[in-house]
Design a protein around this nucleic acid. Structure first.
Length: 570
RNA sequence: CGGAGAAUAGCUCAGUCUGGUAGAGCACUGCCUUCGGGAGGCAGGGGUCGCAGGUUCGAAUCCUGUUUCUCCGACCA
């Protein structure tokens, strides 16, 4: 491609509305432009990257035996009524009516449509298992789209749905998809982790998320230093440092802590570490009353875990100050387990503390030297908190490291949620009607592009992994307008490289200064760069530099093609 | 959904407090000089100051409404 024929509107300055690196660089490098909140146009250069990601995903899905099809973006409301999601799905589902006043929505996902197709077209177990996928535009009317295409309303997704007669068969496909996803993210050249995930409202036994590791990621994932254990922080089991508390060594003492409400303030007032404090949170109970949850002062409550407790109301709701005052006669900030008149759950790590600090259930007072069993009843223990860096790994091997990740893939077993609701059945070998068992597998294709940049950039711009770079080679002439020889050599080289199948971006724009060209090449992140100058040609060389290299090297023109072949295949 | 902020040229912004008829840098067009890391000069083109209403002799500026965009929060005892 000749740069003179490419729309490549690079920007010197960061756009004001872009916060994260990938968003800034995608706009600056001329990959995308915003049309409205969460809606983006992919410019030619960006589209090339998107298509490369798609191609890799498509190849690996095909290799895994999945069949590609393409479903409509606009879906009839009737189908969603059938599955029950017309009611369940909130305002994220964009709904509208056609000219006949029939209800439709823009597809945020395609379980209904694929299930409808399969129930019509597949009647026999002989056609199973089947795995269908598409690479297509999805629309979710996010409350707060942000970070460019990372969290857009309209985005490109690869979604696949598999159909089975037995759980064992689903397991097999699930495993194959797991392997396929690993191959895909390996080929994309990304540093990622597959982590155990919460199945959430969708249910099912098994779920894995694939995360690209990046500090700017929205999700926290935990993995072991010693084993292959990896899980979403929300799901990872938090283990205590010891099995039981040491024996009490201090007497219970009530101390005045005027004005100290937060853990930090109490610690400052009493000169203790947050890990020696027990904080008490009050949440709504399942029976309409209140329930107390006690955690170590330096730990965070895990919403998902708390909601699973039988007497806690879901969704988890913290009691407001007025409710706490009414029930306990004491405001939040001075609460504690000693003499507490509410049902209490204690986190495992808080339950193994001795001589701890806690609120005295009297405004402005705390206890020191509190001990379970002696000063308050022996605790009802539960896993209530998020894991933190350095926690023991739940599988008993190593310790947990917490890293940020960007969720780019998710596979899970759906079971019969949609097939049962929508009557997707086939006849088995004995001629009995059986409800299909489903799995589903997604990859956020457009998000992969942003995630790749989050993980691969420097102060000058993008550092594309070779497999998804919009072009592999940038060909840069120096002063072509003054040097017929430079121009002629570049034209010839461009032709030869193209003929060999290299994807070359030939920076042939007239009257653009070298500094500007090189800055653009760095910004858009082309992995390999060739600079052709009169000076080099006089010695019969061309300058080569990889985007990640610090210094260029001179390569004899005669050896250039062999050099590139070796370089690009490594 | 709650809170905060912003909207002026293609981009980044100044001008708004204190009302007087619109600016800079970059980008763009032409010419000249320069030419291996975002050059310089001269001359240009480009904005109903988000939209609607109000106050005023006069509104980018003051008031009201509205739309759009952005950020923060929804883990606090």
């Amino acid at each position: 491609m000749r740069a003179s024929q490419l729309l490549l509107p690079t920007l010197k300055e960061d756009p004001t509305d872009a916060e994260v690196v990938s968003h800034r660089l995608m706009v600056r490098a001329g990959l995308i432009r915003k049309l409205a909140a969460g809606l983006y146009t992919w410019l030619p250069l960006g589209l090339r990257v998107l298509r490369k990601v798609e191609a890799i995903v498509r190849e690996e899905m095909d290799r895994a035996g999945a069949q590609e099809l393409l479903m409509p973006v606009v879906q009839p409301g009737d189908l969603w009524q059938e599955s029950g999601r017309w009611q369940q799905y909130g305002p994220e589902l964009l709904r509208f009516r056609d000219r006949h006043e029939r209800e439709f929505c823009l597809g945020p996902t395609h379980e209904e449509v694929i299930t409808d197709l399969v129930r019509r077209e597949i009647q026999s177990y002989r056609e199973l298992p089947a795995n269908f996928y598409q690479i297509q535009t999805k629309f979710r009317d996010e409350v707060r789209p942000r970070f460019g295409v990372m969290r857009a309303r309209e985005f490109v997704m690869k979604d696949a749905y598999s159909f089975h007669l037995s759980e064992a068969c689903l397991d097999e496909t699930y495993q194959r998809m797991y392997q396929t996803y690993c191959r895909i993210f390996d080929r994309l050249g990304l540093d990622y982790r597959a982590v155990l995930a919460d199945t959430g409202a969708i249910g099912g036994s098994h779920s894995h998320e694939f995360h690209v590791l990046a500090d700017s990621g929205e999700d926290a994932i935990a993995f072991s230093t010693e084993s292959d254990y990896a899980a979403n922080v929300e799901l990872a089991e938090a283990l205590p440092e010891r099995q039981s508390p040491p024996p009490p060594a201090q007497p219970l003492r009530e101390v005045a802590t005027p004005g100290a409400r937060t853990v930090a303030e109490v610690c400052a007032a009493l000169g203790v570490a947050a890990s020696q404090v027990v904080k008490t949170l009050i949440v709504r109970g399942a029976d309409g009353g209140l329930v107390a949850l006690a955690l170590r002062g330096d730990h965070e409550l895990n919403r998902v875990k708390a909601e699973k407790l039988p007497d806690v109301a879901a969704p988890l709701t913290l009691a407001d100050e007025a409710e706490v005052m009414r029930a306990l006669g004491c405001p939040p900030g001075s609460l504690g387990p000693v003499g507490l008149s509410l049902p209490l759950w204690v986190d495992r790590s808080a339950a193994v503390l001795a001589d701890f600090v806690c609120g005295a259930n009297r405004e402005g007072f705390h206890f020191t030297g509190a001990n379970w069993g002696r000063d308050c009843p022996a605790p009802r223990i539960a896993d209530l908190r998020n894991v933190v860096d350095g926690d023991p790994s739940p599988d008993g091997r190593g310790r947990l490291v917490i890293r940020r990740g960007i969720e780019v893939g998710h596979i899970f077993k759906l079971g019969t949620k949609y097939s049962a609701a929508m009557g997707a059945r086939v006849l088995d070998e004995e001629g009995r009607e059986r409800t299909l068992i489903m799995g589903c597998y997604g990859i956020g294709v457009s998000r992969v592009v942003a995630a790749a940049i989050e993980q691969n950039h420097d102060e000058r711009g993008i550092l594309w992994p070779d497999p998804i770079a919009p072009f592999r080679i940038a060909l840069v002439p120096v002063n072509a307008h003054k040097s017929p020889e430079v121009r002629a050599q570049c034209e010839a080289l461009y032709g030869r490289l193209q003929a060999r199948g290299h994807e070359v971006l030939y920076m042939d724009r007239e009257r653009v200064r070298l500094g500007v060209v090189l800055a653009d090449v760095d910004l858009i992140g082309i992995p390999h760069r060739l600079v052709v100058s009169e000076r080099g040609l006089a010695q019969g060389t061309v300058e080569y530099k990889a985007r990640r290299d610090d210094t260029p090297m001179d390569v004899p023109l005669a050896e250039l093609e062999a050099f590139l072949a070796a370089r690009l295949n490594s």
